[in-house]
């Protein structure tokens, strides 16, 4: 098959959208694992609401990503992904949709950060992960509201209202646990320290980030990094917690190199679509 030149900007837009969408889906999926197992009924319900927000955002973004894919020429479409199941569908000439992107891509086509795929562990680890991610998401979406891509700007604007609430929720829990009992203080400090090494990647620009920034579509990650640090610092301070200081940062998720956890997550999430392909549910 002859290699056809891919329109690089659109290609980067696709990757950019998938990075964002995959963060939303994987984070939402993780949070949904809490449903029925929360520490108290009211918080169980709260966490499900947050998970639903994330999955809802993922759906809007996958719909956009699918439309980008479907607009490529059919020969190019076959070169977009490295996942056999998805490519089989594309090579039959079928258009793809949100579910194909969520369920038929293998881990090496996922572009979420390592942070969101980390297991829930306990309440402290979940709160720490959410706090780091919600804070990032808040500044990310604030910036994307003025994206030159109108679809992205619209999704950002709608999502920001939800994320505002997520950030309040996770910040309040950081403060409650930090300034709660001796045990909760220790647990949340440990969780924050442990998850810290996954936060560097949030601000590592990928090729897609750079291309989209130069076009006025994306986000200046170095700028929001400072905002992120300031906010994290302020909340930890109020929570009587210490800013973690580890220097070595894990990275790879945004470049499709994942931790072992994602494979298990996808095996579970995608099981139905893989075991019973090409059916309506």
């Amino acid at each position: 098959m002859a290699t056809v030149q891919i329109d690089n900007t659109t290609f980067q837009l696709l990757h950019f959208t998938l990075q964002w969408a995959d963060n939303a889906l994987i984070n939402g999926h993780r949070l949904s694992e809490w449903c029925g197992h929360g520490p108290v009924l009211e918080q169980d319900i709260a966490l499900s609401n947050i998970a639903l927000d994330h999955i809802g955002q993922a759906r809007s973004l996958y719909q956009y990503a699918a439309s980008i894919c479907n607009n490529f020429d059919s020969e190019i479409r076959q070169q977009l992904f490295a996942s056999t199941a998805l490519n089989q569908k594309i090579s039959k000439g079928e258009l793809i949709d949100e579910d194909d992107l969520a369920y038929l891509r293998d881990a090496w086509d996922f572009r979420n950060t390592l942070l969101v795929e980390q297991p829930n562990s306990d309440w402290a680890f979940t709160v720490a992960r959410s706090f780091y991610f919600d804070t990032f998401n808040f500044f990310w979406l604030s910036s994307l509201q003025s994206s030159s891509d109108s679809v992205i700007a619209a999704i950002a604007e709608k999502s920001l209202k939800e994320v505002n609430y997520h950030l309040r929720w996770s910040s309040e829990w950081i403060i409650r646990l930090g300034d709660g009992t001796m045990e909760s203080h220790q647990r949340i400090q440990d969780a924050l320290n442990d998850r810290w090494s996954f936060t560097g990647e949030l601000f590592q620009p990928t090729e897609a980030d750079i291309a989209m920034l130069s076009m006025g579509v994306g986000v200046d990650l170095s700028r929001i990094k400072q905002q992120w640090l300031d906010r994290i610092h302020a909340v930890l301070n109020e929570a009587t917690l210490i800013m973690p200081t580890s220097v070595w940062m894990q990275e790879g998720g945004k470049q499709t190199r994942h931790s072992e956890h994602l494979g298990y997550l996808l095996a579970e999430m995608q099981f139905m679509q893989r075991a019973y392909p090409n059916m309506q549910w």
Binding site: E42, I45, A46, R168
Partner: peptide, 17 residues
């Protein structure tokens, strides 16, 4: 009604429930 540790949480829980 619902349970909450403090007023801020009660309002948020009320919103969620």
């Amino acid at each position: 009604s619902l349970h909450a540790a403090d007023a801020a949480m009660a309002i948020e829980n009320a919103r969620d429930v």
